[in-house]
């Protein structure tokens, strides 16, 4: 077995909220440059695991390393430097309602305090073009945008610091099938061009084969399996059977040619 280069390494993660145990000993490695999907029933702790990777939540026990730094031991300055190296696309976009599209994308760049406005303007407009949005959208306010546009603006903001690691929380939720397909293609194109590591939560069986190199299945507080779609689907576990071999799943996956 060759040594894996991990963008994120989680070691023996336990998470408890009061008496509720969410994770009991999860260890996994997100390889550099790969697209990893987190799958699991509702309440299986996918979102919690993602928040622990981002550093928004501290596990009750265990170690999370991102690019080799221990998230929960570093000093605040180092953690901030690390945060600048990843982008997060939240489920509902989380655009700042006070700011228009342009300022939303420009905000992380302005916060660096080193770039002049003309440079920021060009970078922002490039990001808008990157996510296939018209330059005219730049001065729209978040509440004037459709769901698909909000996602794309949020993606542009997540990309504004040129992240090496991108987290997506249900990237296609709330999008119609066509918008969802377009968004998947967009993410794949950006992944090819920019070469970031991608970690995402998804429920959407349609997008799994297209969007993920590997899939991690969470159930019963543990990691059931991690591997390619074919490898994961072979595991004998009630959730896996239900999720990958149910009637609906078979219909979707055969249609996708998987």
């Amino acid at each position: 077995m060759s040594a894996e280069r991990c963008a994120i390494r989680m070691h023996d993660i336990h998470t408890r909220f009061g008496d509720t145990v969410v994770h009991r000993g999860i260890s996994l490695c997100v390889r550099e440059g790969e697209r990893l999907g987190l799958v699991g029933g509702s309440g299986s702790g996918k979102t919690t695991l993602l928040r622990e990777m981002i550093g928004l939540l501290r596990p009750s026990q265990g170690r999370v390393e991102v690019f080799g730094y221990d998230l929960n031991s570093g000093d605040p300055g180092e953690l901030q430097a690390l945060r600048n190296r990843y982008g997060v696309l939240f489920q509902a976009g989380a655009l700042f309602t006070d700011l228009d599209v342009f300022d939303n994308i420009a905000l992380p760049l302005r916060e660096m305090k080193r770039l002049d406005e003309s440079l920021i303007r060009e970078l922002v407009m490039l990001k808008l073009a990157l996510v296939n949005l018209d330059p005219a959208v730049a001065r729209a306010m978040p509440w004037e945008l459709s769901g698909g546009m909000v996602k794309r603006v949020a993606l542009a903001r997540a990309l504004s610091l040129e992240p090496e690691l991108l987290f997506l929380d249900e990237p296609t939720s709330g999008l119609d099938p066509i918008a969802s397909d377009n968004f998947v293609q967009l993410i794949n194109r950006l992944h090819r061009e920019l070469g970031f590591t991608l970690v995402m939560i998804t429920h959407d069986l349609h997008t799994l084969p297209d969007l993920c190199d590997r899939i991690a299945v969470l159930a019963d507080g543990g990691l059931v399996s991690i591997g390619t779609l074919a490898e994961v689907a072979d595991v004998d576990h009630p959730f896996v059977r239900e999720f990958f071999h149910g009637k609906r799943a078979r219909r979707v996956l055969t249609a996708a040619g998987g």
């Binding site: 342009f102 060009e122 407009m125 490039l126 073009a129 001065r139």
Partner: peptide, 13 residues
């Protein structure tokens, strides 16, 4: 990407 990108200023109407 930069070749196709014009330096446009977003206009406030």
């Amino acid at each position: 990407a930069w070749e196709h990108q014009e330096d446009t200023v977003p206009v406030v109407s």
